[in-house]
Amino acid sequence: MDGTILLFLLQDGITNGAIYALLGIALVLVFAVTRVIFIPQGEFVAFGALTYALLESGRLPGTVWLLVGFGVAAFVFDLVALRRSGFTPARLTSAAIVDLVIPGLLAAATWSIAGMGLGNVVHFALTVALITPLGPLLYKIAYRPIADASVLTLLIASVGVHLALVGLGLVFFGAEGLRAPAVSDLMLTVGPLIVTAQSIAVYVVTAIAILALWLFFERTLWGKALRATAVNGLGARLVGIRTAFSGTLAFALAASVGALSGILVAPMTTIYYDTGFLIGLKGFVAAIIGGLASHPLTAPAALAVGTVESLAAFFASDMKEIVVFSLILPVLVWRSLTATHVEEED
């Protein structure tokens, strides 16, 4: 192997790593705010990628029906919750707007736009708009009723959600793998390296997204409310932050980050309805290296995971997944040993 190959592998690793970084940060965010270990994050990636690829090829993505279905289910859950807390016209209206009207409008908009070939910027925005509401709706349906349960119960629920979403992915997107066209055919030659426009798009979008998240958490009231919930849920409630709202917001961010990652990854590899799981898990490896707590640690860890994966793929392609997932074990042990002793929770 010569230097060029090494450089190529490193570049490939960093491109993938950037996407893992986005996912890892979303996972850390969801865990910190809601204590949910969000295994289904990868499904948002797959849904985002497939939605974008279908829009690009001029077809109507199944996401539309998925979104409407989720909205109806969430509305039922809201009705049940309202029956307990008492119906008021205001509450009923707001539930109907969030669960039925917004998904309905998005679906209608997509239905009328799809096939008009409005270009990748419109499709990009539309994909993010379609996937983002799935996060809060999912939170409402699956997690909010057990929000007070232990981390382990929430984790098992996550696994259930993952199974369901993969199955729904097959129903709404079919078994066929899709690949979106690259943003541009442009290539840059930097010394011995050939850098595609797509990888530049990945770096730029990732950097912007991370910066935006940072600004959101540091500079906005909502961001600060989320951080407060992450530090101490009960304390946050006592100062008037609605933790259910924080959860909703965290899931919306996670879903939009998932959609973004999906759009970025769609032109680089063929995505199937079940591809998301492995991509999401690699984001997890990074998040865990960051202790499920640190955003600044998660990003470099994700780049390292991407690099290791790309090197392993070159040297022992059969063993690629084995290497990446074994990598996590020493990290977990180290994390457990250095973690401050916490009294058992149940």
């Binding site: 259930g160 979403l165 993969v166």
Partner: peptide
């Protein structure tokens, strides 16, 4: 795979 959906939903 539809069984996956039912499984997941029942589990949750």
């Amino acid at each position: 795979q539809l069984e996956g959906v039912v499984f997941g939903v029942v589990l949750v």
